[in-house]
Amino acid sequence: MKKLISAIVVLLLGAAACLYFFPSALLATTQLVERRLAGLSPQEIQVGEFTIRYYEGGPADGETLLMLHGFGGNRDTWLRFSRQLTERYHVIALDLPGFGQSSKPDVSYDVASQVERLHAVIQTLGLGKLHLIGNSMGGHIAALYSARHGDQVLSLALLNNAGVTTPTKSEMYLRVQRGEPNPLIVREPQDFDALMQFVFATPPSIPGPLKRHFAEQSMANRVHYDRVFAQLREHYVPLEPELPKIQVPTLLLWGDQDRVLDVSSIEVMKPLLKQPSVVIMQNCGHVPMLERPAETARHYQDFLDAIRG
């Protein structure tokens, strides 16, 4: 028994040391486990000047779900959400050009440019008609894509999407208007905690070493993110004139505690869409697929089932 207890203590100390000294190794292992649980594998393609990284899984002959993350995010955003869907659907989660592990050349990453890059990615992958789902900036891109390339879209799901002037201004909007630092960009280690508090209604519990690792990763990209955010504002494409062009069923799903993009966006979008469905998740923030992945996936599956009657 003493030997067993000693072995357990050694293992725990080893795990603690690994977490403290090698958080990136622990993160890589965790991501591997999450990918396998979701039935996804990492893939890569070359599209023009961009190397695009993405996850893919599910039956190749299933209907395709293409997932687009938000500003500062990456394909890992969708791992736990996808776990509920890969048994039935062909799932692809992109690192959008300029984000995650996709290449980041010195070009413009405004929404209109990203829409055309997305079109090139879809053509290169030979995906045919698909279901689009996007969060925040990714939702803005997905909506504009559906308006401009609607013949390729079966349905659209917008999770707390950008691109709409809201009746109630969000905290993020007011901060940026006052010239305050962008709360979505980590400039100092302590900013990571503030970011988690800002985008989640109930922030996840993350060990300190992993927090530092995430903060360092974000800080390494802060100059790039500042430039991209400026491009998004300078070349802003409002969705209000585009939404009436969308012919397919569209899910508007929002967390009611979103401080980045106010839930009143739905009041603007719903009358402009031909086939809208609305879900407002209570006590949820800006990234419902991260904060409550299983519940968000159930709402999304209900939406897809309703399309089929």
Rank of each mutant, 00 (worst) to 15 (best):
L252E: 06
L252T: 10
L253H: 04
L253S: 03
G255E: 05
G255M: 07
G255L: 08
D256W: 09
D256Q: 12
D256G: 10
Q257N: 12
Q257A: 15
Q257K: 13
Q257L: 15
D258W: 05
R259P: 06
L261D: 05
L261H: 05
L261M: 13
L261N: 11
L261C: 10
L261P: 02
D262G: 06
D262T: 06
D262Q: 02
V263W: 04
V263L: 14
V263Y: 04
S264A: 14
S264T: 15
S264G: 10
S264F: 15
S264L: 14
S264I: 15
S265R: 02
I266W: 01
I266E: 00
I266A: 09
I266H: 00
E267S: 13
E267A: 15
V268I: 13
V268C: 04
V268G: 01
M269H: 05
M269P: 00
M269F: 07
M269R: 06
K270G: 08
P271Q: 10
P271E: 14
P271G: 13
P271T: 13
L273Q: 08
L273M: 10
K274I: 11
K274F: 13
K274W: 11
K274P: 04
Q275R: 04
Q275W: 10
Q275L: 13
P276G: 14
P276V: 15
P276Y: 14
P276T: 14
P276H: 11
S277I: 02
S277E: 13
S277M: 07
S277Q: 11
V278K: 02
V278G: 04
V279H: 04
V279S: 10
I280H: 01
I280P: 00
M281A: 06
M281C: 03
M281W: 03
Q282V: 09
Q282W: 06
Q282C: 03
N283C: 08
N283D: 15
C284P: 01
G285I: 07
G285N: 07
G285T: 08
G285S: 08
H286G: 09
V287K: 06
V287D: 03
P288C: 04
M289F: 11
M289T: 09
E291R: 03
P293D: 09
P293I: 05
P293A: 10
P293L: 07
A294Q: 15
A294T: 14
E295L: 14
E295P: 00
E295Y: 10
T296V: 01
T296K: 05
T296G: 02
T296Q: 02
A297H: 11
A297Y: 08
A297F: 07
A297D: 11
R298T: 12
R298D: 12
H299S: 09
H299P: 00
H299N: 12
H299A: 12
Y300I: 00
Y300D: 07
Y300Q: 05
Y300K: 07
Q301N: 07
Q301L: 11
